[in-house]
Computed example of a mutant assay.
Amino acid sequence: MMKEIRLTGKTIVITGASSGAGRAAAVEFSQYQPNLVLASRNAEVLEEVAAECRGFGAQVLVVPTDVTDAKAVIQLANTANDWHNRLDIWINNAGVLAAGDFDATPIEVHEQIIKTNLLGYMNGAHAVLPFFKSQNHGVLINNISVGGFTPLPYGAGYSASKFGLTGFTESLRGELTSWPEIYVCDLFPAFLDTPGIQHAGNYTGKQLKPAPPVYDPKRLAEAMVNVANNPQSVTYVGSTSLVLKLSHALFPRLTASITDMIMRKYFKVAAPISSTSGNLFNTVNYAMSPYGGFGRPGKPRAHRKYIAAGLAAGVLAGFCLTLFKK
């Protein structure tokens, strides 16, 4: 039986709330009438999201914030706490992506990805933990993605940031053992139908699309709500997430090689496109909805054929690998 959701009146901070999973989460949480603090670099779009959330009865505060700026994130935490003299839940969600050969992608691009995806989450945790400790409770939710355990060829900076996040949160969780009411919760969603890939830096020369199956970001938003209400250390969102976790755990090199092969095959037929830094260094004003238009939102059954094929391929690959080693 699902635990009753009690979030009314709680102060919840969501970073990266202007589009994609963050925007979906803001709308999902708003239906429980919390005090929502929405943060991202795009103040104009945040106001649009805030108006939508207020329509569901939530109180909403917009705080434009660049998570790569540690001082700005501290100010975000202070502002959130001062609003209703409480800070209950912090959701690290802001993230960026760039694709391309590692050595053909500018090093400042790799640096910016790590500043946003890894240091941005560390900035969030560093800013909010003093409040959690002073009140002896709090929930820190980290949207990590399958990139936290599955390497992404042609996305080395992204993989470095996400693998780093996994180590960081596991370390932090151990450090907080003596604080039983402070929770560090990691979410590992599979590929989502968000605009993230449209906002990505792209140095491949080819148009990017997420690999199927592509999941509805509402599923991740619902998982965030459930974890905020009933904290769990690790949550896999979408069956594909768990399949990829097991695949990499059992056959790490083979998993990376197959991923590389699939991507190289895709690049041969993908439409050409000019190089772009996307939203890495500046916010953008296009494709700001929760959805990217790549999947079939609300139809998880459509993914089963992909999941079954993936399982079969993984089993066959493992079996063949075992034979070749004999």
Results as ranks from 00 to 15, higher is better:
Glu48Ile: 13
Gly16Phe: 06
Gln75Pro: 04
Ala190Trp: 00
Val63Lys: 02
Met288Ser: 12
Leu38Cys: 08
Tyr236Gln: 14
Asn202Gly: 11
Ala221Leu: 09
Ala26Asp: 09
His199Val: 12
Ala80Leu: 01
Phe168Met: 10
Val315Arg: 04
Ala21Tyr: 04
Thr166Pro: 06
Thr150Arg: 08
Gly57Glu: 06
Phe131Gln: 11
Gln31Arg: 15
Met288Gly: 10
Leu316Ala: 13
Thr259His: 13
Arg23Trp: 03
Phe267Trp: 09
Thr255Trp: 01
Met261Phe: 14
Asn123Lys: 00
Ser178Leu: 13
Gln31Phe: 02
Met288Phe: 08
Trp90Thr: 02
Pro189Arg: 05
Val243Ala: 02
Leu192His: 05
Asn285Phe: 00
Arg23Leu: 07
Ala156Val: 14
Asp193Tyr: 10
Ser241Asp: 09
Asn226Gly: 10
Tyr32Cys: 07
Phe267Met: 09
Val269Arg: 12
Phe132Leu: 02
Glu4Ala: 14
Leu172Lys: 03
Trp83Gly: 04
Thr259Ile: 12
Lys268Asp: 13
Ser134Leu: 06
Leu254Gly: 03
Asn117Thr: 01
Val234Tyr: 13
Cys320His: 08
Met1Lys: 07
Asp66Phe: 00
Lys299Tyr: 14
Leu152Lys: 05
Ser239Arg: 04
Pro252Tyr: 01
Tyr121Met: 11
Asp69Arg: 06
Thr166Val: 15
Asn143His: 14
Pro189His: 09
Leu87Ala: 07
Leu323Ser: 03
Met263Glu: 13
Pro34Thr: 08
Thr259Arg: 13
Gln198Asn: 12
Tyr154Phe: 15
Phe56Cys: 00
Gly100Asp: 10
Asn202Pro: 11
Glu44Ile: 12
Val269Asp: 12
Ile141Thr: 03
Asn93Cys: 00
Leu36Cys: 12
Gly100Ile: 12
Pro210Asn: 06
Asn230Pro: 01
Met261Trp: 13
Ala51Met: 06
Ser18Trp: 01
Pro252Val: 02
Leu46Glu: 05
Glu44Thr: 15
Ser178Pro: 03
Lys265Gln: 12
Val45Gln: 15
Ser233Lys: 09
Val227His: 09
Asn42Phe: 07
Phe251Lys: 07
Ala228Lys: 08
Met288Glu: 15
Gln75Val: 02
Gly16Cys: 09
Cys53Leu: 02
Val234Ala: 10
Lys325Ser: 15
Tyr286His: 13
Ala39Leu: 04
Lys209Asn: 09
Ala309His: 10
Lys268Trp: 07
Tyr121Leu: 12
Asn136Met: 07
Gln207Asp: 03
Ser159Gln: 08
Ser19Cys: 09
Leu323Arg: 04
Ala51Gly: 04
Glu4His: 07
Leu192Asp: 09
Phe132Met: 01
Lys10Gln: 11
Ala98Asp: 07
Glu170Ala: 01
Asp260Glu: 14
Gly147Ala: 11
Gly155Asn: 11
Glu108Met: 00
Gly16Thr: 11
Ile141Ser: 05
Asn117Ala: 05
Lys218Glu: 14
Lys115Asp: 15
Ala39His: 03
Val67Met: 05
